[in-house]
Design a protein around this nucleic acid. Structure first.
Lengths: 106, 106
DNA sequence: AAGTTATGTGACCATCAGGTCACATGTCAA
DNA sequence: TTGACATGTGACCTGATGGTCACATAACTT
């Protein structure tokens, strides 16, 4: 299994993406804290966090018996850079900003 | 199945990512042309292209009996924007540029 | 019209991935 | 040290996914 394979496989599951959303909103949470946000047993959440960590999307730090989880956005940026060059990036951000503006007006 | 679910599921397979790489390098190719680049039957490639198209990562245009495939990078940018805010983006691009520079020097 | 070329469909099978559970380890507090 | 708390492991079941094949449709060529 290659590095990027691990990243994309990790992102393929909605529960794992939701975990990233939670960490994006607020970093440094424990397993137990994250577990309370999902409709799933602790074991399921732990399994998902392990997948995210092995993919490098989440980094952890131990503090006593607790394990704190942090979002690492670098692999996300690398996905971006794989298929979007500087020129296209400018076009797309312009397009997305325009779309947002139009949606706000309506 | 939600829209973003389709996108992430589509990206989870290495063959499909390779197809995006091919289209990133050169757009507007037919199924037959793409098939020749993969170690897989035409049916497999067609199936993968269908998944990419339904995810909106590839858009197509018919030309007679041929079907031309084009890369659409907008969903990729939206993945980026989901977990990388403006401030973090600046930090990360700086970090990645630095990493690239160091690798070029060594 | 007949043959060739480009693509589409549905079934099939083997493998993988998500989720749960019983059980185990390590840490804090009294 | 005893109990409660936070996390880790391996087995297990079920549903989804990747790839192939037989068959089918549609369009270009001569």
């Amino acid at each position: 299994m290659t590095d990027d394979d691990r990243v994309f496989k990790a992102l393929a599951d909605p529960s794992r993406r939701f975990l990233l959303d939670l960490l994006f909103a607020r970093d440094g949470r424990t397993l137990t804290e994250l577990e309370s946000e999902l409709e799933m047993t602790r074991f399921g959440v732990a399994k998902h966090l392990k997948v995210l960590e092995e993919a490098g999307l989440v980094v952890t730090r131990r503090s006593g018996r607790e394990k704190l989880h942090f979002l690492n956005a670098i692999p996300i940026r690398q996905i971006h850079d794989r298929w979007i060059d500087k020129y296209t990036e400018h076009q797309i951000t312009t397009l997305i900003d325009l779309k947002r503006t139009l949606e706000e007006e309506s």
